[in-house]
Amino acid sequence: MPEVTYIEFDGTPHRVEVPLGTSVMRGAVDNNVPGIDADCGGECACATCHVYVDAAWLDKVALPEPGSQEAAMLSFAAVAQPDSRLSCQITMREELAGLVVRMPEGQH
């Protein structure tokens, strides 16, 4: 099963197996990785599964389309950056094996 590394704001890494077809948010929540709240359960309706995608993965994890629901929600997230994504909108696939994401200071 492909792995994802979640790095907490304080630098603590968590390597977790995430099944293909499952969201990166769900992978964190189901394995009790702290730092991802996911208040809406994956509907792209809040911004509390916010992550920064590691630079090495930005070509494989596309940024949200301008004007999309994800871009709108992210614009309200605390401390959004150009490499921000909502992890509920990243679905695990073969080419993402080894993905590294970092968590913001808090989810808001």
């Binding site: 709108a72 614009s75 309200f76 605390a78 401390v79 913001p104 200071e105 808090g106 989810q107 808001h108």
Partner: peptide, 16 residues
Amino acid sequence: GERRKAVSPVVAPGNL
């Protein structure tokens, strides 16, 4: 959105 963003830092994680 423009107006909300003016006040949201008050209740963002860093300030909390």
